[in-house]
Design a protein around this nucleic acid. Structure first.
Lengths: 196, 196
DNA sequence: TATACCATGTAATAAGTTACATGATTTG
DNA sequence: CAAATCATGTAACTTATTACATGGTATA
């Protein structure tokens, strides 16, 4: 159900088409939430049906049209209600750590390769998050800028501070995963040494 | 598809009934993977059909029977293949950080309450992981003990080391989440001060 | 005018959740 | 003999993934 609120979150800043939302997801919010357009489009239809968003057809080129969605008052209410209500956490499900616990079932090279990939993945995510973080901090992030325009200047610091806080948390997560993978690589090396 | 391999991982140590697997999931592997029995029982049927596990009816009490599953050679092969093959990581999906990025949409009390819950959840997980970690390290963990019996003594250190490594990673994750939530609480306090 | 990008979906599966349902066995 | 635990599921639903499908617009 969080997809719906992730979409509403973006639409609180400005109206968008399904395509824009999918792109935004991929480029910015996507690092916290991701969804393919085959999930976004049907959800937008359901949200419009529930009157959380209003769609209007906008002409595009000579013949084409596209549908731009704006959040409604009911949508803002629903988003605010979700924001206030405590989150119900999903049960833990961590295939990377599950596999690591059973590394005796594969060879050292494969285990090393998997840990290197793990580190690599989080280095990449870390880089993307750092990029977003810099844009938010400097108030050059397009969505954040848009958001600041519709909010009172007194709120600007809070808005930016919360986004910085969230991204910093994600960067710290990535750092942790990179460090863990590196400890794993060292462990495998030490076990290999021991064998000689 | 990882559920299947999580089940196989447990069954490499010893044969078990569906009920035992569900319980083991909840009590030990469950901190890395969790599943309700309504997901476990059908999956066991499919795995038996695919001949990764073999079920046998065991008498239980005077009239009852229960079905105990053992991993087959094909099952061991499938598990080893999965262990060797690189993991395909699921796209990021993190409602807690998503919400934190939009805390301006709720009041300070609600935001604080959510961060407190976040810290509390990870403190609890941390405690469970530390418990498992101690059992594994001291080789008193029932499943690990069972596993050590069927493996050569030369492999014991590796087996324990990988499990310790995996659990230590989870503990570090929990520490990170707790620290993040506490930074968030401090941030909210400082924003509230600023308002006065 | 070809290529990249914008735009919107459907269909089929797979995976996961929630609620319900039933009955035997063991233990205090 | 009551309560806790062991044991095994089905049904309905929601969520997410993968693959496919189509066509318009902008730009070099």
């Amino acid at each position: 159900m969080s997809l719906r609120y992730a979409l509403l979150a973006v639409l609180t800043a400005q109206p968008m088409t399904g395509y824009d939302l999918a792109r935004t997801f991929h480029a910015s919010v996507g690092h916290v939430w991701n969804a393919p357009n085959s999930q976004i489009y049907p959800e937008l239809h359901r949200m419009e049906h529930d009157e959380l968003i209003a769609g209007e057809d906008v002409t595009w080129g000579s013949r084409g049209t596209k549908r731009r969605y704006s959040i409604t008052d009911a949508g803002i209410g629903a988003f605010r209600a979700w924001m206030t209500q405590p989150l119900d956490y999903a049960p833990e499900r961590d295939p990377a750590h599950l596999k690591a616990a059973y590394f005796e079932w594969t060879d050292a090279d494969s285990a090393r390769e998997q840990l290197r990939r793990h580190a690599e993945l989080y280095r990449e995510r870390r880089g993307q998050w750092m990029g977003q973080l810099a844009l938010v901090r400097d108030r050059e992030h397009p969505l954040v800028r848009q958001r600041l325009e519709i909010f009172d200047a007194a709120d600007h610091d809070r808005i930016v501070a919360f986004k910085v806080f969230a991204y910093e948390g994600l960067v710290a997560q990535a750092d942790q995963e990179i460090a863990w993978a590196e400890r794993g690589l060292a462990l495998i090396d030490s076990l290999a040494d021991h064998h000689r």
